[in-house]
Design a protein around this nucleic acid. Structure first.
Lengths: 211, 211
DNA sequence: TCCATATGACTCTGGAGTAAGTTACCACCG
DNA sequence: CGGTGGTAACTTACTCCAGAGTCATATGGA
């Protein structure tokens, strides 16, 4: 009855946990580098050396696969940022310390960061929830840092705080993105560079007082 | 022989130039707000109150339509930034003056800015060329401003300059994006807010010298 | 015998792009 | 003034395809 032979269907192959990790690694990198919308499940399966139905078997849907990538990556970053926050630095020193930690964590896998800023990501409740959970954790830290900085300047406008959090997140983002485009640069060099840039901006002339 | 009547097919309607402008307005706003990939040509046609083939008739393809949006929007921004650059301000004062001008230009149509940062945009040569042409013009200005700032700090590392340009563009982007989320804020208020934020960061403690 | 791992070969849908025809206006001719 | 052809503006009703998701089945091991 055997229909055409089917190249290694069966094979008992790799245990599920291990295979899931492989798929997540490939998917995270690909989604991060090219964006959710531009990547097909078939392509991920091919890169992982398996077939599409296996991906669906393990992750349910393309969206579920993306959510799993976010889950894994978010935990890595948030853990490090929490650690830095607990170290007690304040103001710009704290900002630099945070950058230093994240650069170290992202070395060799800068794409992790991009997952959370992918504008083509699905807008389902599930994905939104995972993104919110992780970014909230990061935002919480940014809010603390920004509040310290504004307090020093005697500024207590809540909208200013909200905007500065956005700016800070964006500075962070742009440095990581720049790094992605310059892969030969090491994490340590990125940290040093960030410090120089902060210093240069601070060394500049004073702003005319508009506040 | 007349087949079923065809609700206002014909109608001599609106002249092409005018209709094109209407379509561009709708398309620009929609692409800007939701991203290229998430918007269908059929939806734009419906919002513009016309049928899909008319859009194709005038713009050739979805990508062509997007490129036309970029063309129009890019000219508006670049013109203003050039004007500010010619005004002679230097360093952070120049940065603030640039922000002030762009905020004024974007008032009520903040989505324009987002078109150039849409990660889901098509990657065809044509679109890339249009984006490059306009962003190069802006980048050119940013490069000048950044060079002044780094020169004051005695920094002549070209990679530092490249990174700082990216950061500056991103700060710009984040402020506009924040504004999109707070539509009740006026351009003038955004300008004042930006000045306060710069001042607050500058007022903060000194960075420990790492350079 | 049952389950976990695995796959070839589908189905189905959304959305890009097209074919072919319809109607209104205008310029020109008699 | 009435006809008549050209063209610009417009539509319905398709085709076509990539890519999400599914079904039925194969195989090795406990």
């Amino acid at each position: 009855m055997a229909s055409r032979p089917r190249p290694n269907a069966g094979t008992k192959g790799v245990p599920r946990a291990e295979r899931e990790a492989e798929i997540l690694a490939v998917a995270g990198r690909t989604f991060g580098e090219r964006g959710y919308a531009a990547v097909s499940v078939a392509e991920i399966a091919e890169l992982a050396g398996i077939s599409k139905p296996l991906v669906y078997n393990y992750f349910g849907s393309k969206e579920g696969l993306f959510a799993a990538c976010l889950e894994e990556s978010g935990a890595v970053i948030a853990h490090d940022v929490d650690r830095t926050a607990a170290s007690g630095a304040v103001g710009l020193a704290r900002a630099l310390a945070t950058l230093e930690g994240v650069f170290a964590v992202l070395e060799g896998r800068q794409w992790i960061w991009r997952l959370f800023f992918d504008t083509s990501r699905p807008t389902t409740e599930h994905v939104e929830a995972v993104v919110a959970r992780h970014t909230n954790r990061l935002t919480q830290r940014a809010v603390e840092g920004v509040a310290e900085m504004l307090a020093v300047a005697g500024n207590d406008d809540p909208l200013d705080a909200s905007a500065l959090v956005a700016v800070w997140a964006s500075v962070f983002d742009s440095l990581v993105t720049w790094w992605v485009d310059h892969p030969e640069v090491t994490a340590a060099e990125m940290t040093a560079r960030s410090a120089r840039l902060f210093a240069a901006v601070l060394a500049g002339d004073r702003v005319r007082a508009l506040a």
